[in-house]
Design a protein around this nucleic acid. Structure first.
Lengths: 339, 339
DNA sequence: TGATTTTACCAAAACGTTTTGGAAAACTCA
DNA sequence: TGAGTTTTCCAAAACGTTTTGGTAAAATCA
């Protein structure tokens, strides 16, 4: 593996000149630069990252920790999210470091500490933000750049990241459901400490109220963002004295589980029961019947988060620190809409 | 951010002693070690990774490049796979570097080159191995440790990784299908350059033959491992003069698309048509009807690949260089089995 | 006792870059 | 012509570790 020293020796130049030629400084002549670039290429020289990082005091790496329960995580949301981060990072010659840890666990703390204090990453992307999130306080205190999907309550104006504005989306979705005669509408949510749960439940209830329907506490169930959680929650709803005729789920995976449970109870979805999700993961188009959902451009959101983070790392002026995204209602057969 | 120098100064010790105390060498007294550890802890000292890497000439990082087509990838297989790699790496205090690149593309080559030659990773995990795979030749030539899921034709005895033995699985699956009277059985596969396509198609045909059924070329269709590919392939099959009564798909995502297409053509799956997948991704339990599939322990496979890789990096003696895994047939309603 | 071994520590070199602060050579202009 | 300016290059100093090759002091042994 040739080093910069080898290249310099071959060309009878100093290390300095080679370094500066390759980095595009203008204090090296055109011909010299040409020679350097060619020789480096021919010798297969690639700068050693560790040495560069040590000297430059940065890593050209951003980090993301998948907030997954114990071993597996299977939400395609994360897959798309990671792809978006990775692609944006790669396009700026950055790398993406990935790990998994259960939300709010000691492991999570350990990894963040190792990455941040050990100087493994220049910045971090956070999602599944919690209402009170130690991560934002920790990163803020350590003065490490970071971006968030959804704003925690600890963050005021200095927030940097993406927020989804779901009010209109839920208004439209519930308008669609009530237009078909539904009035007993349930909500299968997530852990109450999550910001998305807080936001989506509130938007759901506000939309209901604005349509003249009184929200009912016993029609709000807690799931866990997985199909299994959705399945159990749906069973619970179906066992009620007066089961709902429509169910809004906090994400698509929950909805997939709910559909399954309804099927198992011989409900015909789209006729006996309307179901809607949130996210627009690829699978949602392939459930039976296809799932009505509020589609978010997850891949684009991830790229945006990475882009903002890279700008923050480079200390660029960021004109728009909060990027707001509105989900897009996809009406499919699961809500009895057009087939 | 305190460095080892700060710790040494605080304790009036040399840098050497601090370093060796923390690394557990035995040429430092019990009391000194204790003092060092406590002070380092108290000062919040964490070794700088870049400096350590530069000196040790290794990175404590393994790499994995998701072989995804253009922007998105949504296969939960990858999500589970990445989680497995990440967890195993973390348990050995290693990190996981992730990127995405279309298979066999210039981007793929660039990233591998950057990682390997720039010394960003100590080793690499490969999956979606191709029949002739430049990656294995490249890594072998550069003498970088790597492990593979599935063996490419370029690899002989020096293979290190996991192979799936699917012969029995397909035998059992096709036995199950023929027992229900199916004899026109189609196969929706993947790109012919992939090792899994090669293996699974061959296993499928051998199983058919052994059951006394002549494989028919026009019942073998090429998909692309996505639901969309499965959807299109299924439409094609349904339009045949004599459509198949059962369809075996190369992975679950393909099967999910196939189910969708069949539904859209008013086939009742499990009655008019049997469909089976491969992988056992979480979603396969929640299709309607639930999908019969050959379940692979993806998470465990990924952990195994990472573990083997770490052993290779540490130059440990590896007693078992090829770990063979057999998928497990899950009979669900999509093949007309038990409900 | 003096010779040998063990214990506990350390100075300095190395890892491969980037950056700082010049400095010689080649121009430019009056 | 000679003073200033620009161009092109470079030596040496970091960056924060780990490792090498020691050396005094203490303990052990004959």
């Amino acid at each position: 593996m040739p080093t910069i020293r080898d290249v310099a020796k071959t060309l009878n130049l100093s290390i300095t000149t080679v370094s500066r030629a390759l980095d595009g400084y203008d204090d090296v002549s055109k011909e010299t630069r040409q020679r350097v670039i060619e020789t480096a290429q021919a010798m297969g020289y690639v700068p050693n990252r560790a040495a560069r990082q040590l000297r430059r005091q940065r890593t050209d790496t951003i980090g993301y920790i998948v907030p997954a329960k114990k071993p597996q995580f299977a939400d395609p949301f994360f897959a798309e999210f990671v792809a978006g981060l990775g692609d944006e990072a790669a396009s700026a010659n950055y790398d993406l470091l990935v790990s998994t840890a259960p939300p709010d666990s000691p492991e999570e703390q350990t990894i963040y500490r190792r990455w941040v204090q050990g100087g493994k990453v220049d910045g971090v992307v956070i999602n599944r933000t919690r209402l009170n999130d130690w991560r934002v306080n920790f990163l803020r205190e350590k003065k490490i750049p970071f971006t968030c999907l959804e704003r925690s309550l600890d963050q005021g104006e200095e927030f940097l990241g993406v927020e989804t504005d779901i009010q209109d989306g839920y208004q439209e979705l519930l308008g669609h459901l009530t237009a078909q005669g539904h009035s007993r509408i349930a909500f299968i949510g997530a852990d109450a400490s999550l910001k998305v749960q807080y936001d989506r439940l509130r938007a759901f209830q506000q939309a209901l109220t604005s349509l003249g329907i009184q929200p009912q506490a016993h029609l709000v169930i807690e799931g866990d963002l997985t199909p299994e959680g959705g399945y159990q929650a749906m069973l619970h709803l179906l066992a009620l004295d007066q089961p709902p005729s429509a169910v809004v789920c906090v994400n698509d995976l929950t909805a997939i589980g709910a559909i399954h449970a309804a099927h198992d109870n011989h409900c015909v979805i789209g006729r006996d029961l309307a179901i809607a999700g949130f996210d627009g993961v690829a699978d949602s188009a392939h459930t039976q019947p296809p799932l009505t959902t509020l589609d978010q451009p997850v891949y684009a959101i991830a790229r945006t988060l990475a882009r903002l983070l890279l700008q923050a790392i480079a200390r660029e002026e960021i004109c728009q620190r909060v990027i707001t995204i509105k989900p897009n209602l996809l009406i499919r057969a699961s809500s009895g809409g057009k087939r």
